[in-house]
Design a protein around this nucleic acid. Sequence first.
DNA 1: TTGGTATTGAAAATGGTTATCGATTCTAGT
DNA 2: ACTAGAATCGATAACCATTTTCAATACCAA
Lengths: 137, 137
Amino acid sequence: MSDMLAGTSRNTRQRAEVLTLLDEVPDFRTAQQLHALLVRRGARVGLTTVYRTLQLLLDAGEVDVTRPPGGEQLFRKCSRSQHHHHLVCRQCGATVEVEGPAVERWADRVAQEHGFTDVGHTLEIFGTCQACAGIAG
Amino acid sequence: MSDMLAGTSRNTRQRAEVLTLLDEVPDFRTAQQLHALLVRRGARVGLTTVYRTLQLLLDAGEVDVTRPPGGEQLFRKCSRSQHHHHLVCRQCGATVEVEGPAVERWADRVAQEHGFTDVGHTLEIFGTCQACAGIAG
DNA sequence: TTGGTATTGAAAATGGTTATCGATTCTAGT
DNA sequence: ACTAGAATCGATAACCATTTTCAATACCAA
């Protein structure tokens, strides 16, 4: 697992299980879904530990989180660590990483024009992917 | 209150109180904050009713909702009913309505290119407004 | 006015997420 | 290896925003 976390952290079996799973699942998933997947494959990891590890990975910038309108938090280990956004299927969580340099500039400019500082933004695109449209279309 | 809601709905005192308050508060507020404001001014409205009325107004497209990372839902009656986005102060909820036609087109094009249908997006800019920066800057 | 129905709201339930805390496990030092 | 000390685990309880329940009430058409 190398040094997934800085400072005083330990490489435990549980964290390795969560990291391995995240590498295998390409879609956005809830913490509870990830925990269920771990249990199903026989990995003995508590739900609490899944939440904690995801929070650690979030702080380390190793995973992304998004929250669809009316839904719970979704986690995903993205291929790129740089700033980007997502196109996410509402049904299955299938994800496409997208970049929008023009959007970044636009958001920063708008905020600056109104005297806002310490600016950040959230931008996610939600829809139904081709596979899910074919099933329940 | 006129016909704020279609179909079988009634013009109750409680709904009028919530609507009046929303017209007076220019910033994004949580349901609980709005309820507290109502109680403070002597309006006898239950928290449940505030939640329910906000949901009705949401369905009717009369109020907007946003959810800052790690926070609860924020509600606001916007001046324009057409699609737009917000620049919101993390501290006080001060809000600026903004439009980004280029962003809309970009989001729809990206989704279409990947075969997604029934597409929507969330885009909000969060920061610290000038007033709050002056207080705790 | 009156009857039927939508609405209210206090209280309880819900459900995702976080805190507790004793048991366990890793790591460094010897 | 052994041991001490700290980090981690995880079952359980707590948290808290939001929703549901359901009996009492308020609205409105006739």
